[in-house]
Amino acid sequence: MTETRNIGDTLLKVDNISLSFGGVKAITGVSLEIREREICAIIGPNGAGKTSMLNVINGFYHPQEGTITFGGEVRRKMRPHLAAQGGIARTFQNVALFTGMSTLDNIMTGRNLKMKRNFLWQAINIGPARKEELEHREFVERIIDFLEIEAIRKTPVGRLPYGLQKRVELGRALAAEPKLLLLDEPMAGMNVEEKEDMCRFILDTNDEFGTTIGLIEHDMGVVMDLSDHVVVLDHGEKIADGVPDVVRADQNVIDAYLGVAHE
C-alpha cells in the first residue's frame, strides 16, 4: 500500500523536545518526523507522553527544550489558535465537542478560520456575510455526506452516542481543511463496528484529500493496519520508529508493552 501512495517531504519535524511539569518529566528529548500525505501513529503504554506530544505540536503545551518545524517554518512558541491558523486541526481523547450545538453548527465552527469577512460583518447575518455563510455551509454539507452523518445534522451533539460524537469531532477537524490532522485516540471506547467505520473514514480522508494524519492509538491491530510509520514512546522517551512490521518485531517495544521479566 505504501508504495502506491506518493509520500512527500517532511511536513512536521519535532526536534529534541523536552517537556516537564514542575519536576515531572513528561517528554525527554524526543524527535520525530511526519511526512506529507502519510499516516503516522504515535503509540505507547499509558503515561508514555503521547497526548503531551500532541499538545506540544498543537500549541497547548510549551516545551522547555527543542524546536518544531512545521511546513518549513521553525516555531518556538505556539498558541493553539495560531496552530489552527497554520493548518493543524485536532480531535481530543475525551471528545471535546460543543455539546449544546447541533452537528451542523459544530462542524461549521471548524470553518471559522476560513471566513474572510471581518469582525463587524461576522456580527450580523445579512449581505456578504450571509453569502459567505452559505458557501461554507455547502462545504460542510459535503463533509457531512462524506462521514455519513446526514441523519443527525440538526441533533444537538450532547444527545448523540459516543461513536457518532467522535465522528462529528472528526468532521469539525476536517472542516478546517487542515494540512496536518491530529487524532487523539480516535477509536477509544468504540465497539468493533464503530472502529471499522472510523478506520475507513481515516483512510478515505488520507486518500481523497491527501491529508497528513498523526494519530495516537492504543489498539495495536488498528495501528498496524492504518499507518505508514509508527513512533513508539515509553516513559517520555522514543524507543522505536519505523514501518509497522519492523516496530512490531522490536524487542524494546515488546518489553514496553508486555513488561520485562526481572532477574
Binding site: 493553539p80 489552527a84 460543543f98 449544546g100 471548524g110 478560520l113
Partner: peptide, 15 residues
C-alpha cells in the same frame, strides 16, 4: 456558544 461549551476545543478550531 462554542467558547461557552468548551474552551479547549474552541481554541483548537482557531477561535
Amino acid at each position: 456558544r462554542a467558547v461557552a461549551d468548551d474552551h479547549q476545543a474552541a481554541l483548537s478550531v482557531g477561535i
